[in-house]
């Protein structure tokens, strides 16, 4: 790890200004990505601004049935929050199936949104990687790519977005609130989560629309009654402490055997947390029967592009999507 200087921030504006002013200054929150990649020599800031003592830790149930999650709330705190558990079980579940108990105590929600990919070629600090060093190439395309993405890829990058909790957040149309400092002064911004995670395209190094120094302050999840009966299904080799090969966040509203509303998102298969819009569109108004689930899954995965090593992923994703929908509709207890 290169030498760094350290600043303990005690106000949001100061922290944002300090980081904005210097491209070699990074925020330090839970540290589970930042410290790891500093030690890997992948991130090389000269200065860290410790934001852990900023007052951004609250978790607040909103009158519309939604919830506002402070960026520095820890994953474990959000997972255990009663409001989150009741209103958005898929969020709690995704959090609890992520990482380990220790990491969940450390990692912040804002940091989770900003976490880096797990691609070994990105992490080794020296392989060709367009995300780490634009223009250097993508070693994963012809390399070991079992865990890599099949949706939203480009010829420049196929790294999978690693977050679990971002998957239900995408399904739920969450919004990301930030603080920003520009020449004209301090301000706040608000990003729809659908626009927050960028596909690699020609610029894999650009992962989100934030300016350098722009700080996530909160994640707001709008109220959505059908999310009270939602699930997060995660498929992986190991029973725990592993990133998803495929995951599905799903919520379904069914009336008389017909799907009234549905939210679906996929993890582990996309270069971003993947909202399954096409599957949702197919399902709304369709009878909740296995054939329709399978058709929806097929439609969603029809553009999947695979390598020899991850060729199983589209089929696994289809089956996982179907399983999630079957599980949610199986007992027929919905109205």
């Amino acid at each position: 790890m290169r030498p760094v200087t350290y600043l303990l921030a005690d106000d949001v504006e100061g922290a944002v200004r300090t980081v904005t002013a210097d491209p070699d200054t990074h925020f330090l929150a839970g540290g589970t990505t930042e410290v790891d990649l500093l030690r890997q020599n992948v991130l090389t800031p000269h200065r860290l601004v410790d934001i852990n003592r900023l007052p951004l830790t609250g978790i607040e149930a909103l009158p519309d049935g939604g919830v506002r999650i402070g960026a520095l709330a820890r994953m474990s705190e959000v997972a255990e929050d009663r409001g989150v558990r009741e209103r958005f079980p898929m969020i709690s579940r995704a959090l609890e199936l992520g990482a380990s108990a220790q990491l969940r105590h450390m990692a912040s929600m804002g940091g989770n949104m900003m976490q880096k990919v797990r691609c070994g070629y990105y992490r080794d600090g020296e392989s060709p990687c367009n995300k780490r060093l634009p223009g250097s190439g993508c070693a994963a395309l012809t390399g070991v790519s079992r865990t890599h993405a099949v949706l939203g890829t480009s010829e420049h990058c196929i790294a999978t977005h690693p977050s679990d909790v971002a998957v239900p957040l995408v399904a739920l149309d969450a919004r990301i609130h930030t603080r920003i400092h520009t020449r004209t002064g301090d301000g706040e911004r608000d990003h729809a989560i659908g626009d927050f995670f960028l596909e690699p395209g020609d610029t894999p190094d650009r992962e989100h629309p934030l300016a350098h120094g722009e700080l996530i302050t909160a994640i707001e999840v709008p109220g959505l009654p059908i999310a009270r009966r939602s699930l997060y299904l995660k498929v992986r080799d190991r029973e725990s402490y592993e990133f998803a090969l495929v995951s599905v966040a799903a919520a379904v509203d069914m009336v008389d055997g017909v799907i009234g509303d549905v939210r679906l998102a996929l993890g582990g298969v996309g270069t971003r947390p993947w909202r399954a819009i096409r599957a949702e569109e197919f399902l709304i108004g369709a009878p909740a029967i296995p054939e329709n689930f399978e058709q929806a899954a097929r439609i969603e995965l029809s553009d999947a592009r695979t390598t020899a090593m991850n060729a199983f992923k589209p089929e696994l994703a289809r089956r996982t999507l179907v399983r999630a929908l079957e599980t949610l509709t199986r007992d027929g207890s919905q109205r």
Binding site: R118, G120, G143, V144, T147, D237, R238, E239, S240, Y241, E242
Partner: peptide
């Protein structure tokens, strides 16, 4: 070796 870490070289955890 492409997966030279305990994150990617999988050994059992308690749940396994």
């Amino acid at each position: 070796w492409a997966n030279a870490s305990l994150g990617e070289y999988l050994v059992p955890v308690n749940a396994d």
